[in-house]
Computed example of a mutant assay.
Amino acid sequence: MEIGGLISALIIGLIVGALGRLIVPGRQDIPIWLTLVIGVVAALIGTAIMASLTASFWLTLIVQVVLAAAGVYLVTMLRGGRHSHA
């Protein structure tokens, strides 16, 4: 993989992580850097899953964002639960 591909993968991963965090309701008590790491991992896994199923950018992006939201939710639960602004 060349440097341009790596940089674009990281940028897409950062966006996917941010979108995934926005989807999860309530306040997530995890640092932003962890959200971004989750986004990068979700982008890589989503791309791997969807590569054999479709070439659609939009469907792949949806799968990546859903995976990121699931990752943010899971990490939030493992770190001690969600807190809401009540």
Rank of each mutant, 00 (worst) to 15 (best):
L53S: 10
R27P: 03
I15R: 00
H83M: 10
A48L: 13
L22Q: 11
L74K: 06
V66H: 03
I11R: 08
I32C: 04
V72P: 07
T35A: 14
I49Y: 00
I11P: 06
V41R: 02
A51H: 13
V40R: 04
V63Q: 00
G26R: 09
V24C: 07
T54K: 08
L6G: 12
Q28F: 06
I49P: 01
L44K: 13
V66I: 15
Y73A: 15
G81N: 02
G26W: 11
A86R: 12
V65M: 00
V65W: 04
W58P: 05
A48M: 06
T47G: 10
G80L: 02
L6T: 10
A43E: 06
L34I: 11
L67Y: 03
A9W: 07
V41I: 15
G39H: 00
G4N: 10
I7H: 00
G5D: 09
S8G: 04
A51S: 15
G13A: 03
R82Y: 10
W58S: 15
L34Y: 10
G17M: 14
R82N: 07
A51I: 03
V75S: 01
A55K: 11
W33C: 10
L74A: 14
L61C: 03
I12A: 08
G4T: 09
V40W: 00
V63A: 15
S56P: 00
M1K: 09
V40A: 15
I3F: 11
S84E: 14
T60V: 00
A51G: 06
G26L: 13
M1T: 08
V75R: 00
A43F: 04
M50V: 01
H83I: 14
M77H: 09
I38P: 04
G46Y: 03
I38G: 02
S52A: 15
G71H: 04
V24H: 01
E2S: 13
R27Y: 14
A55C: 06
P31M: 09
F57H: 08
M1G: 07
V41N: 04
G81P: 07
W33R: 06
V75N: 03
L78H: 00
L61Q: 01
T35W: 03
I30W: 07
P31W: 07
V72A: 08
H85W: 11
V66R: 12
I3E: 06
V75M: 09
A18P: 03
V72Y: 01
D29N: 14
R21K: 14
G5Q: 09
H85Y: 11
Y73L: 11
V40E: 02
A86H: 12
V72I: 14
I49S: 05
